[in-house]
C-alpha cells in the first residue's frame, strides 16, 4: 500500500481542485489511512483464477441507432452559464 501522508492528500486535493487548511489535511490523512487499511484486507483473498470484475451488473450495454435527436435551444444551453459571449461559454483563460 502506498504510504498515506499529508503530501499525497494534498496532491489528491489539487487534482480534485479542492483546498483544505492544515487541520483538515491532518484529519483526511488519518481517515484515508484508516479506510485504505480496511480495504487492504481484500488482499488476503485468493483471486488468481477469478476474472476481474469491471462491472457489478452482468448485463451488456444497450445501444442506440445512429440517429439525430433535437439538440437544446441555445438559450437553454447557456441558461446556467455564469459567463458567456455570443453563443460561447466564457471562462478564465486556460493557456498561458
Amino acid at each position: 500500500m502506498a504510504e498515506i501522508n499529508k503530501e499525497l492528500v494534498k496532491y489528491i486535493a489539487t487534482l480534485a481542485r479542492l483546498e483544505f487548511d492544515e487541520d483538515e489535511l491532518d484529519d483526511f490523512t488519518e481517515k484515508f489511512r484508516r479506510i485504505l487499511e480496511y480495504v487492504e484486507q481484500l488482499k488476503e483473498l485468493k483471486v488468481d483464477e477469478i476474472e476481474p470484475t469491471y462491472h457489478i451488473n452482468v448485463n451488456y450495454t444497450s445501444m442506440r441507432e445512429d440517429e439525430i435527436n433535437q439538440s437544446l435551444e441555445i438559450s437553454e444551453v447557456l441558461k446556467n452559464a455564469p459567463d458567456k459571449k455570443d453563443n460561447f461559454f466564457r471562462v478564465p483563460r486556460v493557456v498561458e
Binding site: D66, E67, I68, N69, Q70, S71, L72, V77, L78
Partner: peptide, 22 residues
C-alpha cells in the same frame, strides 16, 4: 456518424457555437 457517440446531437462540422449540445 450522423450523431454523437453517447447522445443524439448532430456531429455536423462548422455549426454555430453550442447549437449541437444537449
Amino acid at each position: 456518424t450522423k450523431s454523437k457517440i453517447f447522445c443524439g446531437c448532430s456531429t455536423q462540422f462548422g455549426s454555430s457555437p453550442n447549437s449541437q449540445t444537449c
